[in-house]
Design a protein around this nucleic acid. Sequence first.
RNA 1: ACCGAAAUGGCGGAACUGGUAGACGCGCUGGACUCAAAAUCCAGUAACCUUUAAAGUUGUGUGGGUUCGAGUCCCACUUUCGGUACCA
Length: 946
Amino acid sequence: MEYRHQEIESKWKKYWIENETYKVNNEFSKPKYYILDMFPYPSGAGLHVGHPLGYIASDIVARYMRMKGYNVLHPMGFDAFGLPAEQYAIQTGVHPLTSTMDNIRRYKQQLENIGMNYDWDRQVITCEKNYYRWTQWIFLQLFNHYYDPVDQKARSLDELITVFEKKGNIGCNAFTSEELQFTAEDWNGFSDARKDHILMNYRLAYRKESHVNWCEALGTVLANDEIKDGVSERGGHPVEKKPMMQWALRITAYADRLLQSLDHLEWSDSMKLMQSNWIGKSSGAEINFKIKDHLTTLKIFTTRPDTIFGVSFMVIAPEHPLVDLLTSNHHQQDVKSYLEKSKLKTERDRLSDTKQMSGVFTGSYCIHPFTGEDIPVWISDYVLIEYGTGAIMAVPGHDQRDHAFATTYSLPVLEVIDQSAIPNKDREAKAGIVINSDFLNGLAVSDAIERSISKIEEKGIGKRKNQYRLRDANFSRQRYWGEPIPVVYNSEGQCIALSPDQLPLELPPLSKIEPGQGGKSPLIHAGDWIKTQEGMTRELDTMPGYAGSSWYFLRYMDPNNEEVFASTESMQYWRDVDLYIGGTEHAVGHLMYSRFWQKFLFDLGLVPVDEPFKKLVNQGMIQGIIENILLVKNSQPGQFISAAMADQFQQDQLVAIPVHVGFVNNYNSADAHLDANGINEFVRWKPDYANAVFTDLNGTYSLKEIPEGFKIMTRSEVGKMSKRYHNVVNPDDVIAEYGADVFRMYEMFLGPLQDSKPWDTKGITGVAGFIKKYYRLFYHDGQKVLLSDANPDKEHLKILHTCIKKINEDIGNLSLNTCISSFMICVNELRRTSCNNKLILKDLNLLLAPFAPFITEEIHASLGGDGSVHHQTYPQHNDSFLTEDNISYPVCINGKKRFEWTVPIDKPQLELEKEVLLLEEVQKWISEQTIKKVILVPGRMINVVI
RNA sequence: ACCGAAAUGGCGGAACUGGUAGACGCGCUGGACUCAAAAUCCAGUAACCUUUAAAGUUGUGUGGGUUCGAGUCCCACUUUCGGUACCA
């Protein structure tokens, strides 16, 4: 009888639920281990084979740690608010809550089929009000706190108000985005609205004007994802940047701490580097340039104040508030048309276009603070309004892009650093001696930077400043399917937060989801909900996707608490995540926001540690194969050509249309194609192409004329597995065919956890064969094998303990692919030596349990074991079983291996060195040459150098 | 454009701090069992040169370098993947 996985899996799934095998209690006497996966967004396509890669790995580690005696917290939940559900609702009318809950049910079932050991009583769903109530609560805390950079912590806004009442803000260090000064008298005289406006500059959750992607034709704000090639993906309408009042989180207040505490984390260096580059700290100076014939100044930031004598023009961003003021009458037209062009460009385009610079002269000049010369002010979109002050002093002599710009518009290039003594000099290198620069002449760059800053400060025209690339996080979405922001506005537009006891502010039901006028969120249609009884108006924006995911790991510690987001007691015990596994796609966004929230909550004394994720591992992505069919652009009625003919066309004449991989024959191979059948399926799926024609090397045919054997080759590429590419592979079919244990082990066997790889089931029969062989150690022809109770012999102990040692080491390194190989080797060896020893096989079964939870549970029971196999103690190897008598040395001549030499393991090194030279194989190579030296690495190799 | 990662047989991959390149598995070839097939088991399998063997040569994306010795370290580059609200 073969191993019948379906029967056995459903039997144990049921047992585990009935016996609460995976129930997690706060057992404070045991050491804790918290292992977490990044929870999924429950997409309509279901769980795909890429998700479980990390989930299986963490499931294995969780089971392993439990068998090692830890109290393991390994929860799962759902990041349930998001754009796709809303888009689906717009298309189909199905309410996001309905579709989301359906998807969650499906995901849960799929996860259980894989044999995950989650305690579902701890599940967190971000769109449920008992969860988002606390997301709103944390938002209120952010709203009611400011940041004190001196004490490096968040403080209550009430304290700040008291200070303002007594002393105004002069000499106040609170972190702020406005440099407005006022006295206590000023403050006390301000209107409520004015005070409210000023406090917005301090709150950690605040409102400000930011730029959004506005699509006039669709009447809505678009996510970057909804824009392709600068136009809306839906309908291809133009998209432009538009300023709108938006909520934002003042993450920049925490920039330094987010950077500093990276050092203490067990994250990969590349991950820390990405985070640190994202924060992007740079130091330099902020300088105010006088504007000729105006009273205002132009504030710029530069990291190279040493090159101030090399400034030949200024550049401001097209969105800069001084654009109108600086544009002279004569230049109105040019500026206007330039602004319109650049509005349509995405930020990425603006940064990518480094070869083709564009800009326009304003007609105005700044005055150089030291030379008094006139400096023309230009507008260019290579300067971004969101970074620094949105304006720069351009030094084309020592900055690549300024140089490109100067060349394009024939502006002067001044050299102020002598780099003649520097090899491989590059324009931007901070090395050399300053020249042509008055008081800076003769100084080295680093000294000149210091000197110039002191001079600038002395003159009162600027100051030393650290600048961060990180910018405040936009927290507003003009969407329905997100957490409502718990604030209301009075008739003067003053913003008033709800009190915590008014939470949760529930998302009102909406029968129809569509944007309101002027880009308002669909909540505008929520009728009574909008106005409170007191005559206030509710905030209509909702929170972004990352709100709920910024703190969910805390809720798992105490998921059903009604009084607080999690009790102090439970947080004291679980503290932080010991191992966090998730994809690199969250490298900066989610991980940065979570760290920020954690630090904020830590400042408030609400969590015991200020970093949430001690150790982080990024699993690779399981990619899909995207199969495309090539359409000739602008062809009527639509001509598809075989990819074999693509070279007969210009690249930009063809459009690749992703087709459902199910239609493609020999998918993911050189012969991937659509045959007549596939073409028919394709047309049924995309009826727009019913009249299209299909061309291969032999001719062009309409749908009805397609001859026998006709093939239209597809173009295959590797990419994300996603609903939008119609290439999602579900684990369900694989599990139905081979069983969950095989699926789990195969995903691990594919390669290192951290690597990305395309999904392919080619090798799965190897793992299936392993499970069958394993089963046959215990069952043969439907009969239980009679196992021996004797003491195990030396050979079998060595086979087993070699494996135990390797598995323990490899799980520690998360090298789970090599674990699978080790199991295969072990089982092959035991079979080769016809092992039927019960003690050996029992330990092997324990060893395998975290990887193959079902079959090992079955075998544990059949061996008469107590309770669940997953509650047993994990085997530990014994070195005394692993000793060897002999060792085989590779012998190299000049570093190249020539033969192997087996010697007793305790042979002294000196003897080895002597005897090796006498060997026939060595003599052969020496012949007439002399021996220069012999290198012996004990236990590893011998190299004879001649 | 920028940040990060990766590249090893026909394929997925192994090789811990520089020390036997290709473990394990897939695929392929041959054999055993079978009337036959499936399943299972056994053997072989980097390329090249010698038609066997032995021996040898070349080989870890490309080009250089360091070293007795490089898949591993250094420099430059190519391609692929992931990310990007954002270079001062």
